[in-house]
């Protein structure tokens, strides 16, 4: 059993006994791992206070070959996001990021780009001038891309024709993208959400440009984006996220 080192984001913790804790960690090198931290609830332990939710820490773990929980032997805080403790919408957005990482990814399936995006999003959320809904939307679009569910925003998902930013378009969650006006008439309605030209333009930009979340959007467009992403993420997960009622557009 060789020790492995990784950079990890704490996405869930459960108290296990009087002194131990089970944690779900989303690591850059190994993907999602579930570990037992013996003594993890003690003030004086090898884990300091690194096992608090949404803390980035450097960890050492012993991987269990039998399929049980891995054993965490060390954890040191690498980064915290103190601004989340002063901004409720940003804090809830952070919890939502943890939920998407914890529940919708496989164990030992690393996605370094998604890890980096999660840390970047948590760093930005709650800081001055950052729109929480737009920063979160950018994270969701990276999450979708990394898991292979990138929404189709350039072509109609039915006829594959190029789609311009015009009135009358819909985003069909169960088809994974936009449906042109012609195909909407020909095909059975699915899980459709209206998408305005500005809404489509914003989604495309957020999906393709890593800095697009820094721009401001009209409230109406933000509401549209939230609806489309909520429905799509819910469809893919097969159930609504627990944090959905807490998210604002």
């Amino acid at each position: 059993m060789a020790a492995e080192k990784a950079l990890a984001l704490v996405v869930r913790t459960v108290d296990w006994s009087e002194t131990s804790r089970i944690a779900t960690l989303w690591t850059r090198e190994l993907g999602k791992v579930r570990v037992l931290a013996k003594g993890g609830r003690r003030l004086k332990s090898n884990f300091e206070s690194a096992l608090d939710l949404l803390t980035v820490c450097r960890i050492v773990l012993l991987r269990k070959s039998s399929g049980g929980l891995d054993l965490l032997t060390e954890a040191q805080v690498a980064q915290r996001f103190p601004q989340l403790r002063r901004d409720l919408p940003a804090l809830y957005a952070g919890y939502y990021i943890a939920e998407l990482l914890a529940d919708s990814t496989e164990d030992y399936d690393p996605h370094p780009a998604l890890f980096d995006e999660a840390v970047a999003a948590l760093t930005a959320l709650g800081t001055t001038g950052v729109s929480t809904p737009l920063r979160l939307a950018r994270f969701e679009l990276v999450w979708l891309r990394e898991l292979g569910y990138q929404p189709e925003l350039r072509q109609c998902v039915v006829c594959a024709a190029e789609v311009e930013e015009k009135d009358g378009l819909v985003f069909r969650a169960d088809a994974g993208g936009i449906v042109c006006t012609t195909c909407q008439k020909k095909t059975r309605r699915g899980q459709d959400d209206f998408l305005s030209p500005k809404g489509l333009a914003a989604l495309r930009e957020l999906s393709e440009n890593p800095e697009a979340w820094r721009r401001d959007l009209e409230d109406k467009v933000r509401v549209e984006l939230r609806q489309v992403l909520n429905r799509y993420v819910t469809y893919l997960r097969g159930k609504p996220a627990k944090l959905l009622p807490y998210l604002r557009s």
Partner: peptide, 11 residues
């Protein structure tokens, strides 16, 4: 003084 404890205090 955890993230959830501080979040509760903030609320």
């Amino acid at each position: 003084p955890t993230l959830e404890g501080d979040g509760t205090a903030l609320y």
